[in-house]
């Protein structure tokens, strides 16, 4: 039982960390100063979430486990983030669309998780819900702005929907550890969130004059450690210092 809870917590932590890492790539390169601050704020929130989850996982694992040993010393196949968050940041359209998909999912997830039986996970979910609400609001507005902005922004949105849609499904395909933790009441069966997510996305897309794609071949496996080529590059940078200077304090 405990191992599945650890896996679940790591999955939640990894999602937030990898997306936080991707968003931080905009630092100093944003399209406008105010938005640079906005996206790095979101990045900071996500990293904060990941730290909470990792710290909890570390206590569950015991031994000498710490938030850093979990983030810096695991290999790609041990990471349980979904494929959506490891995709490149792309242009602004890709970043805000990916944020919208993810935040809408996180919002529904945390809303339920805050009432779950695991006190720690519930507490983290409750605390994170406020910031996720903001992320959702911010990214929804951008989807609308770019979808219903200029021809160019509209085209870029079409392109990025095409790029990212295939990764959305994985958010709602529950792994065995997710299902086990859900049946204990400590976690959430994400497959039950899909319909609501779809409804919300359709609402925003409609206002943004964007089309919902038809049947797409979906990609998954990240939550079970089968990643795209991107993750290895992300981890190479992320883990560089600790791997080059093992066992040091920073």
């Amino acid at each position: 039982m405990k191992q599945v809870l650890i896996d679940y917590t790591l999955h939640l932590a990894d999602d937030s960390l990898i997306l936080g890492q991707r968003n931080a790539e905009w630092c100093g390169h944003g399209p406008v100063l105010e938005q640079d601050i906005a996206i790095t704020n979101i990045s900071l929130d996500l990293i904060g979430q990941s730290r909470n989850f990792y710290q909890y996982a570390a206590t569950l694992i015991g031994n000498d486990s710490t938030e850093d040993s979990l983030a810096y010393l695991r290999k790609e196949e041990e990471f349980k983030n979904c494929l959506l968050v490891e995709q490149p940041k792309g242009d602004w359209a890709q970043t805000i669309l990916r944020q919208f998909f993810f935040s809408q999912y996180q919002y529904l997830l945390f809303q339920q998780l805050q009432n779950g039986k695991d006190e720690q996970l519930a507490a983290i979910a409750e605390k994170s819900l406020k910031e996720v609400t903001y992320h959702l609001r911010w990214s929804s507005e951008w989807v609308i702005r770019l979808g219903d902005g200029t021809d160019e922004s509209h085209q870029r949105m079409i392109k990025t929907i095409d790029e990212l849609w295939k990764y959305a499904d994985e958010l709602f395909s529950a792994t065995s550890y997710e299902l086990q933790v859900a049946s204990d009441g400590a976690g959430i069966d994400v497959s039950k969130l899909k319909e609501q997510w779809m409804t919300k996305v359709k609402e925003i897309f409609s206002e943004a004059t964007l089309p919902i794609p038809g049947k797409t071949f979906v990609q998954g496996g990240g939550k079970e450690g089968r990643h795209t080529e991107h993750l290895a590059y992300i981890l190479t940078e992320l883990q560089y210092m600790q791997r080059t200077y093992p066992g040091c304090d920073w």
Partner: peptide, 17 residues
């Protein structure tokens, strides 16, 4: 002060900055 296209964005930017 800050630059924004509408009140919504201005409010969010103000909050962030």
């Amino acid at each position: 002060s800050l630059h924004a296209t509408d009140a919504q964005m201005a409010m969010e930017n103000a909050r962030d900055v």
